[in-house]
Simulated assay, not measured.
Amino acid sequence: MLGLIISLIVIGLIAGAIARLVVPGKQNLSIPATIVIGIVGSFVGGFLGYLLFHKDAQNGFFQPSGIIGSIIGAIIVLLLWIRFGSRSRSRV
């Protein structure tokens, strides 16, 4: 169980950092926020992989993905964060 948690954190950090490098512009995110974006992106990538390729049906369609799917999912989550997160902060 501890190995799973550590691997989720490491993959989340790598995927979140690569997503922040790929997406243009400055993102004011901390390291824990980058890790969370990477972890959520991993599940988004797993969901998209299931929808596109219909693999791993026994695990359901809410599952972690590999590093490539994690990066793609993290980019999607980061773009959504920038789009909708900045709008909510600008209203205050």
Score class of each variant (00 low, 15 high):
Ile14Leu: 11
Ile14Gln: 04
Ile14Thr: 09
Ala15Met: 04
Ala15Gly: 15
Ala15Arg: 03
Ala15Cys: 12
Ala15Thr: 09
Gly16Glu: 06
Gly16Tyr: 10
Gly16Leu: 15
Gly16Phe: 10
Ala17Gly: 10
Ala17Met: 14
Ala17Trp: 15
Ile18Gln: 03
Ile18Met: 03
Ile18Ser: 01
Ile18Val: 06
Ala19Ser: 15
Ala19Arg: 15
Arg20Pro: 05
Arg20Met: 10
Leu21Glu: 05
Leu21Ala: 08
Val22Ile: 06
Val22Met: 10
Val23Ala: 01
Val23Glu: 00
Val23His: 08
Pro24Leu: 05
Pro24Trp: 09
Pro24Lys: 09
Gly25Met: 02
Gly25Glu: 07
Lys26Thr: 00
Lys26Arg: 07
Lys26Ala: 00
Lys26Trp: 00
Gln27Asp: 00
Gln27Lys: 01
Gln27Trp: 14
Gln27Tyr: 02
Gln27His: 03
Asn28Gly: 01
Asn28Val: 01
Asn28Ser: 09
Asn28Thr: 00
Asn28Cys: 02
Asn28Ile: 00
Leu29Cys: 00
Leu29Asp: 04
Leu29Phe: 09
Leu29Glu: 03
Ser30Glu: 05
Ser30Pro: 12
Ser30His: 08
Ser30Leu: 13
Ser30Arg: 14
Ser30Val: 14
Ser30Tyr: 07
Ile31Lys: 08
Ile31Cys: 04
Pro32His: 08
Pro32Thr: 06
Pro32Cys: 09
Pro32Arg: 06
Pro32Phe: 11
Pro32Asp: 07
Ala33Gln: 08
Ala33Ile: 05
Thr34His: 01
Thr34Met: 15
Ile35Gln: 09
Ile35Pro: 07
Ile35Arg: 05
Val36Leu: 15
Val36Pro: 14
Val36Arg: 13
Val36Tyr: 05
Ile37Gln: 13
Ile37Met: 01
Ile37Tyr: 13
Ile37Asp: 02
Gly38Pro: 14
Gly38Glu: 08
Ile39Arg: 03
Ile39Gly: 10
Ile39Ser: 08
Val40Asp: 01
Val40Gln: 13
Val40Thr: 11
Gly41Ser: 12
Gly41Gln: 15
Gly41Pro: 13
Ser42Tyr: 08
Ser42Ile: 06
Phe43Asp: 05
Phe43Trp: 06
Phe43Met: 10
Phe43Lys: 15
Phe43Thr: 07
Val44Ser: 15
Val44Pro: 11
Val44Tyr: 12
Val44Cys: 15
